[in-house]
Each structure stands twice: as C-alpha cells, then as structure tokens.
Design a protein around this nucleic acid. Structure first.
Length: 569
RNA sequence: CGGGGCAUAGCUCAGCCUGGUUAGAGCGCACGGUUCGGGACCGUGAGGUCGGUGGUUCAAAUCCACUUGCCCCGACCA
C-alpha cells in the first residue's frame, strides 16, 4: 500500500475527549474515530490491526476444535424472556422495537440464540460435545462508557459456547479453551495472567479471567508471588484471621460517643486502632435489609456478600430508609437489637470477644458485645476484600495486587441456560437430560487496546509484529530519481515476499514522515534517502529501540524479511 | 441515577466574569517563494447557524431559562 493513496491522517495533538493512552494514541495515529460516546469507527489502519487480531483468534479457536458461525446482533425478545434475562439484565441491555411494535434486543452476548440453535439441531448424546464460536459486534449500553475501546458500548467480541453430556467433557473443552486463550495472548506478546473470577450475571459454577497487566486497568488482580494462586479482587480470598488472644467476655455496656459517625472517628474517640473495632455495613437487597459486620480496618466486598445471600440485587442502604430498616440512626448502627432481616459477620471477627459496635441510638456505641449472648449468632463467611500483604489462601505468602485489563473470560455455565430453555438430549438410556454448557468470551478491540497500553513510548505506539497494521514502513526521503526508484524497488520486493508494507511516498518533509512512523508504530522502518544512497546504502531500524543499521538494499531487504517472519511466528 | 465541568474554524484552544465595530490564535488546508534526514520559514488566502430553542435588552458568543451532546468524579458493570 502507498501512503499517498491510503486513508491515513494523523493528529498532532491529543483529542480533547480521550482519557487513556491507548485511546489517545489510536485516535492520533488515525486508527480510530469517535462517533458517539463509546461508539467508534475503525479507520482503515485500526481495522487492519483488529482483523489481524481476529485472524489469530480464529486460528487458535479452530486449532482447539471450535467451529465458527455467525449469529444476528438483533435478537427477538422472546428468547431473552425464556432465559429470564429480559427482566434480569437491566439497562445495559439495549431494547429496540420494530415497526410492528415487536420487542428486540441489540445483543450483548448470545447464550439465548446459540442455545435455541443447538436445541433444534441436537437431540442425542452421540452429537455431543459441540463448541461453536463467532466474532461479532456486541452492544452494552454502559452507564458510563470510557477508555476508548477498553470500555466501549459497541465492541467486537469473540464468543464461544460449548455443549456437553458430562462434566468431564465440559472440563476437557474448558481446558482446551484455556490453552487457546493463553496461546492467543502469548502470540500477541501480551504480558497476562489467568485468575479465578466471579461469574456475575452470566452465572455458572466456575470461571477464569485473562488479564493483561497495565496501570490503566479497571480491575484489580490478586496474585501470589510464590504459588500460582491468582484471582480477581472480587473473588480473591486470603487466609487472614485474628490471632490475638482475647480476654474473657465482659459485660455489655453503653459508651457515650458523640459525633462519631465514621469508624475512624470512633477509633480516635476511644483511642483504639480501627482493627479492634467492628464496622457495620447495611445493604438493601431483594431479601430485605442485611447487616454485615467486618473488622474495622477491612473493606466489605459486595460481590461476596451478594453471592452468599443468593440475592438478585443489592445496594448500600440509602440514608432515607436507614432508620426505618435498621431501627437506628446512620453512623451508630449495630447488631444488638437491630431490625435487619439477616446479620452476616466476616471471618476476620471469628473467635473475637467483647466487640465495640454501634448502639442503634444517636451518639451511642456498645462495648463488650458478644455474639450468641448479646445478639443472635451471625452468619459467618468471607465478606471482605483482600488487601495487599494478606497471606495467600494456599501457601500463606503475602499476596500482591496488580491492575489489569480483562481481555478474556471463560465460564462453566452448567445448565443455567439449557434448563430454562429446554435444551436437552437423550442419553444412552434414552433419558432426557439438559446439556451442560460452557461459554468463552474474548474482547477483540479490548485486546488490541491493551496491547497499546502495554507497548508504547512518548513518541507513539510500538506494535507487536503480529497485530501491527503494517509490519514495515518504507520511508522515502526526498524526490530524487534514485531515491524514488530505490524506495519503489524495496517496496516491491517486500510485497513480493509477502510482507505487509506501507510505502510512505507522500510529498512531506523527512521530519514529518519520521514522526508519523513513530506515532503509528510500525515495528520496522526502512529509510531510503539521498545521503546514505550516495554510499549505496539504505537504513533500517526497529521501532522499539530506533537504532539505525545501514546496508545495501538487497541485504536490508533480506534482513527485514527474516525479521518479519521470525516475529510473526 | 447523584455531583461537577465543557460545547466558539477540520484539530487544540482564547474571548464570556464586566453585553457594544467586520469573532480571534496556533496547528491543519489552498496558492507563491525559500527550504528538504526528526512535526521548517516568509507572504497571501479560504474556512464560523459561537451546540439548539426561547427569553431579557436599543444591542447577546457574552446575561437568564429550558434542551441536546460530550467529559470528569461517584454509584453501577459478562
């Protein structure tokens, strides 16, 4: 491709509404254009990178035995009503209506349609297992889209769905997908980790996330530097527990604590570290008011609490309803005499005696409160978020916390969709069974953006070879006949060798061309100019270190072809 | 959904507080000239419903109300 005939225009300045590096650089490099909040045009250069990403994903999915198909983005409401997600999904689900007033959704994922497809076609265990995938545009009406391709509303995702007659079969496919994902990210040269994850709205029994480590990541990942333990912060546990000796049970007594609404206030007032106090969190859920007791210096984990309760929805109790729901004022609430429907307590409090808790009365706390004596024994469980330094649940090594971008997520769904949607088969005994399912998502655009987050410098993007829009740019410096004909010749020979090469034949000054080449981030650059050509040489360099090497055209061409083939794999 | 901010040339932004000639700059674009290995310089020029609607006023980019879009913080989130 010749730059002069291509559609590639760079921006000198950062766009005003870009907020992360990958978005700024991709917009400046002429890869991406914002059309509306969270909705982008992939310009030709951006399209090339995402298509390369897609090709890698296809190769690895096919290698792992998955079969590609393509499902519609617009899906009838009936299917979503069957799975109950029409009601459960909330506002992220974009609902649209056609001219006949029939309800549809712009699909954020495709469990319903694939299940519908498979239940029609498959009726015997002999036809299983099946693993189907697509690479398709999805839409999620995010409350607050941001970070460019990393959290768009419209996005491209590879989603795969597998169907099985046994857990063993599901596990086998799950492993194959896990392996395929690792290969994909490895091929893109992405520094990533695989961690245990919460299953969230998709549901199911087990799930893992693939995270690309990056400062700008939206998720926190807990990882053990010693054993291989890794988990999303929402899910991570530690073997943290109280091991200080506790005195004998004391008498329950009121303490006057005026103006101490926060746990820090109480600690300061009583002259005790917050770790010796008990923090009370109150949630409003579909099961009524729930109180959660945690150690004063720990943070509650709403996902763990929601999962323990089996709740459909949960949120912090609004101040307006607080008094009515708990029987006490905000800031002084506690388990003794509370009106909350259920009381949970974090394991970090297990075995502790003489709690300091809110008194459910203005300016009043209680000391010497003991579970089982002064208030009913709470439901015990792990309800707090892991902190850096907590001991690993497997090997007790202090845990570390990193930020990461979730680029893939795989789930063991079980029969969550096959049962309500009646996707069944006949087993060897002729008995009807629901199929056991798995699903496997991989964000295409997000992975490309993650690569940029992980690989750039002050001058622009540094593309990993496999997803670079072009592998090589040939920069023609000047219009002298020999410069032009040499650049042309180099360009043609690279093309013939199957190299993805862009010839910068624009009528621009050298500085402009170099700056653009750095910004766009072509992994390799060949510069053809009158200076070096006078000595019969041209120059080539890697974008990563920009160290210039000179050689005769034939030699440089050979070395570049070799470099491309090695790096592409 | 709560709180805050922004909307002026293709892009990045001044001007608004304190209303008053033909609304500005840099970059980009066009033309001419000098340049030509790391975003050159000089000159000339094109380019604007000042997001929209309504109001106040002799007069509105500027003040007021409403509205739309976008951004940030929070809540939320396969």
């Amino acid at each position: 491709m010749r730059w002069s005939q291509y559609f590639l225009y760079t921006l000198r300045e950062d766009p005003a509404d870009a907020d992360v590096i990958s978005q700024k650089l991709m917009m400046r490099a002429g890869m991406l254009r914002k059309v509306a909040a969270g909705i982008y045009t992939y310009l030709p250069l951006g399209l090339r990178s995402t298509q390369k990403m897609e090709r890698i994903v296809r190769e690895e999915m096919n290698r792992a035995g998955a079969v590609e198909l393509l499902m519609p983005t617009i899906q009838p409401a009936e299917l979503w009503q069957e799975s109950k997600r029409w009601q459960l999904y909330g506002k992220e689900l974009l609902r649209i209506r056609d001219r006949h007033d029939r309800d549809f959704v712009y699909a954020p994922t495709a469990e319903e349609v694939i299940t519908d497809t498979v239940r029609d076609a498959v009726s015997s265990y002999r036809q299983l297992p099946i693993n189907l995938y697509q690479i398709q545009t999805k839409f999620r009406d995010e409350v607050r889209p941001r970070f460019g391709l990393m959290r768009g509303r419209e996005f491209t995702m590879k989603d795969a769905y597998s169907f099985h007659a046994s857990d063993d079969s599901l596990n086998e496919t799950y492993e194959a997908m896990r392996e395929a994902y690792s290969r994909v990210f490895h091929r893109c040269a992405l520094d990533h980790v695989r961690v245990e994850a919460d299953t969230g709205a998709i549901g199911g029994s087990a799930s893992h996330e693939f995270m690309v480590l990056a400062q700008s990541g939206e998720d926190a990942v807990v990882s053990c530097p010693n054993c291989k333990y890794g988990a999303n912060i929402e899910k991570a546990t530690s073997s943290f527990f109280m091991d200080e000796p506790e005195p004998a049970p004391a008498k329950l007594q009121e303490i006057h604590t005026p103006g101490t609404q926060s746990i820090d206030d109480v600690g300061r007032f009583l002259g005790k570290p917050t770790s010796q106090l008990v923090k009370t969190l109150v949630f409003d859920t579909d099961q009524g008011c729930v109180m959660v007791l945690v150690r004063g210096d720990r943070e509650g984990n709403i996902i763990k609490i929601k999962n323990h309760l089996g709740a459909e929805w949960i949120e912090m109790m609004p101040d307006s309803r607080f008094q009515e729901a708990t029987g006490g004022p905000v800031g002084y609430c506690g388990p003794v005499g509370t009106k909350a429907k259920r009381v949970l307590a974090d394991v970090s409090l297990k075995g502790r005696k003489n709690w300091v808790v809110g008194g459910n009365k203005r300016d009043t706390h209680l000391g010497g409160a003991n579970p089982g004596r002064d208030f009913p024994e709470p439901e015990w469980g792990d309800f707090t978020t892991v902190f850096a330094g907590d001991p690993c649940p497997r090997c007790r090594t202090p845990l570390e916390i990193y930020r990461g971008i979730e680029v893939g997520h795989i789930f063991k769904l079980g029969t969550k969709y096959s049962e309500p949607m009646n996707c069944t088969y006949l087993d060897e005994k002729g008995e009807r069974q629901p199929m056991i399912m798995g699903c496997y998502g991989l964000g295409i655009g997000r992975t490309v953006a993650a690569a940029v987050e992980q690989s750039h410098d002050d001058n622009g993007i540094i593309w990993p070879m496999p997803i670079a829009p072009f592998e090589v740019v040939v920069t023609q410096l000047g219009r002298e006949d020999n410069v032009r004909s040499t650049a042309e010749d180099v360009y043609r020979k690279l093309l013939e060798a199957g190299v993805d090469v862009l010839l910068d034949d624009r009528d621009e000054r050298p500085g402009v061309k170099f700056k653009d080449a750095d910004l766009v981030g072509f992994p390799l650059r060949i510069a053809v100019g009158a200076k070096s050509l006078a000595g019969g040489q041209i120059e080539w360099s890697w974008r990563r270190d920009r160290a210039k090497q000179l050689g005769a055209p034939g030699e440089v061409i050979a070395r570049v072809i070799e470099a491309v083939s090695v790096r592409t794999g």
